[in-house]
């Protein structure tokens, strides 16, 4: 059963990555800055997240010792994400094969996979901090792309950059609303099940 599941998730991730490498798909997703950031990169993230089920059964519990409350994994995902927010790397990922390859490897393995391993472990506060930082980054980058009067990428047009900025700000707003709704009306199993402080794991 678990072997079948593992094979399935490896297959799905491989299929997705191969699909994203196909010239017409890749070309379309790199044709605009908006598609690269809002479609290609999230799909690479998904490919990495799919690989979680493919990890050998022992690895995930063993990694917990180094990943208290999911912090290490989310730090890794955050640090790796910074690179793919830089206009310079968005630009050279299109024109330099080495950067392109780094993107196809690092987004699944250093962002998608660690996120999917660590998120279930993350406590309420850790999740809150991570989400807040994500929303802030959406607004920061969105605002930058929206107001910057010059092109930040030589491979992309200015109106594309500004459209991406608009979308990032809108996604940030939607995330704010979703988080607010969850805080007001959502269920928090982690809170209900939180053990008393004294019995915290050591």
């Amino acid at each position: 059963m678990s072997r079948a599941r593992r094979a399935c998730s490896i297959g799905a991730a491989a299929l997705l990555l191969l699909g994203l490498r196909m010239p017409p798909v890749k070309g379309a997703l790199e044709a605009t800055m908006t598609a690269q950031m809002l479609l290609l990169m999230p799909l690479l993230f998904v490919a990495g997240a799919l690989l979680r089920a493919a990890l050998p059964a022992r690895i995930v519990p063993r990694s917990a010792a180094w990943d208290y409350r999911g912090i290490t994994g989310l730090v890794l995902a955050s640090v790796a994400s910074v690179f793919w927010l830089l206009p310079r790397l968005l630009d050279s990922a299109v024109s330099q094969p080495a950067v392109d390859a780094a993107r196809y490897v690092s987004i699944p393995l250093l962002i998608g996979l660690p996120f999917s391993v660590s998120w279930p472990r993350a406590s309420f506060i850790v999740r809150g901090v991570f989400l807040l930082e994500c929303v802030a980054t959406l607004f920061r980058m969105g605002w930058l792309y929206l107001i910057w009067p010059h092109r930040l990428c030589n491979n992309y047009l200015l109106d594309d950059q500004q459209r991406l900025g608009q979308y990032l700000v809108l996604i940030g707003l939607a995330a704010c609303i979703a988080i607010a709704a969850k805080l007001l009306w959502g269920r928090f199993d982690a809170l209900a099940e939180a053990p008393p402080r004294a019995s915290a794991q050591h």
Binding site: A64, A65, W66, D67, Y68, R69, I71, T72, V75, L76, V79, A80, V82, Q201, H202
Partner: peptide, 16 residues
């Protein structure tokens, strides 16, 4: 385990 996590996270931030 918090200590290992702190060290690992610091190492990641420095390497990053």
């Amino acid at each position: 385990m918090p200590l290992r996590t702190l060290l690992a996270s610091l190492a990641l931030v420095l390497a990053g």
